[in-house]
C-alpha cells in the first residue's frame, strides 16, 4: 500500500503509468473523512499536493486558468475574486478556514458530490475542464460531461484533472446557498446565476437538488425575457414581487435525506434563484466575499 508524493506533473504521470488505478489525493477533506470512518481502504495513493503545475491560477487572453490544486482560500483572494467573483462567493461558503486552506477546486469537481459548492457556479460560468493522461493526451470537457452522477465522473484510470478555464469578468455572478449555519455546512440547496451583459446571456445552475448540478434552461429563457439589456435592469414581474419559484421547483429533482426534505429543497432553490437575480441587478456590490 504505497503512497506517492510526486514533485512534478511528469512524475505524477510516471507513477500513474505503473499504477493507473491509484487513488488521486488532493486536499483530503472528503477522502480522509471516508478513510477515517473505515469506509475506504485505498491500496495506492498518489498525493498531488506537491505538483507545482496544478497550483495557482493565471490569465490566458480573456480566460482565467485555474489549477486543479487551487484552494478555496486562493479563490477568495481579492485578485482572483475580481476576475471570477461568483467562484469566490461559492468558495467562501465552504467549510471553515481550515477546510478552505486544504480543499481544492479539482478535489471538489472530482469528488462529484451533488452538494459540491463550486459546481453550480462552474456550470453557470460554462467552465471547461482539461484532463490529462501520461501519454500526453489531453481532453477538454464541460462539467456535465465530467460529473455524471453522485460521486461519479468520467475520469478514466490514470487520467488527472489538470485545470479549469472560465471567462474573466463574465458579467454579474451570484451564488447563494442554504444550510443550517454559515460555516461548516453542506448545502441543502444552492444556486448560481451569471448574467452576462456583454453577450446578453443568462445561465442558471442549481446545486444539491439533484444527482448532479442542474442547469435550469427554462429559467434562463424566461429570465432573459425579463431583462432590459440596454438599461441593465429587470422588467416585468421581477421588478415587483414576482419570482422564479415555480420554474425552479419544476427544474429541481431533489430527494429527501437526513439533511432536508425534497419539498424544502425545491422551495429553497427557488428562493435562491430569485434572490440571486435581484442581487445581480442591484446597484450594490455583492455582500460576499
Amino acid at each position: 500500500m504505497p503512497v506517492f508524493v510526486p514533485a512534478s506533473l511528469e512524475e505524477a504521470f510516471a507513477v500513474l503509468e505503473g499504477a493507473p488505478g491509484a487513488q488521486l489525493l488532493a486536499g483530503g477533506t472528503d477522502f480522509m473523512v471516508e478513510v477515517n470512518a473505515g469506509q475506504r481502504r485505498p491500496a495506492t495513493v498518489v498525493a498531488l499536493g506537491a505538483v507545482p503545475e496544478l497550483k495557482g491560477w493565471r490569465l490566458d487572453g480573456d480566460e482565467v486558468v485555474l489549477g486543479a490544486g487551487l484552494t478555496y482560500t486562493e479563490m477568495i483572494s481579492p485578485e482572483l475574486a475580481e476576475l471570477v467573483p461568483g467562484l469566490a462567493q461559492a468558495a467562501r461558503t465552504v467549510g471553515s478556514p481550515q477546510i478552505r486552506n486544504a480543499g481544492t477546486l479539482g478535489g471538489n469537481i472530482a469528488t462529484a458530490s451533488p452538494a459540491g459548492d463550486t459546481l453550480p457556479m462552474l456550470m453557470a460560468l460554462g467552465a471547461t475542464m482539461t484532463l490529462g493522461r501520461s501519454d500526453g493526451g489531453r481532453r477538454a470537457v464541460g462539467l456535465d460531461e465530467l460529473v455524471v452522477g453522485p460521486k461519479r465522473t468520467t475520469l478514466q484510470p490514470g487520467e488527472v484533472l489538470l485545470e479549469v478555464r472560465v471567462r474573466a469578468g463574465a458579467g454579474r455572478q451570484e451564488f447563494l446557498k442554504v444550510g443550517t449555519r454559515n460555516a461548516m455546512v453542506i448545502a441543502v440547496a444552492s444556486a448560481a446565476v451569471v448574467v452576462d451583459f456583454e453577450r446578453r446571456s443568462v445561465r442558471v445552475a442549481l446545486g444539491s437538488v439533484g444527482p448532479v448540478v442542474i442547469r435550469a434552461e427554462e429559467v434562463e429563457r424566461e429570465a432573459a425575457k425579463l431583462i432590459d439589456w440596454d438599461a441593465r435592469r429587470l422588467v416585468g414581474p421581477l421588478e415587483g414581487s414576482g419570482d422564479f419559484g415555480e420554474l425552479v421547483r419544476t427544474a429541481a429533482r431533489p430527494i429527501d435525506d437526513h439533511r432536508s426534505t425534497a419539498a424544502y429543497r425545491r422551495h429553497a432553490a427557488g428562493v435562491c434563484v430569485t434572490r440571486a437575480f435581484r442581487r445581480a441587478f442591484s446597484s450594490e456590490e455583492s455582500t460576499a466575499p
Binding site: 503512497v3 508524493v5 489525493l25 486536499g27 483530503g28 477533506t29 480522509m32 473523512v33 478513510v35 477515517n36 495513493v45 498525493a47 499536493g49 482560500t73 467549510g95 471553515s96 478556514p97 481550515q98 477546510i99 486552506n101 486544504a102 461548516m184
Partner: peptide
C-alpha cells in the same frame, strides 16, 4: 471529519485540520 477544529495545526504556514491530512503525504 474536519468539522470541529480541535486538531488544527499549521502546515507550511497554513491552518489545516490534521485529521483530514494523510500523514504519509
Amino acid at each position: 471529519q474536519g468539522e470541529c477544529g480541535s486538531c488544527s495545526v499549521l502546515v507550511d504556514g497554513r491552518l489545516e485540520c490534521s485529521c483530514t491530512m494523510l500523514a504519509a503525504a
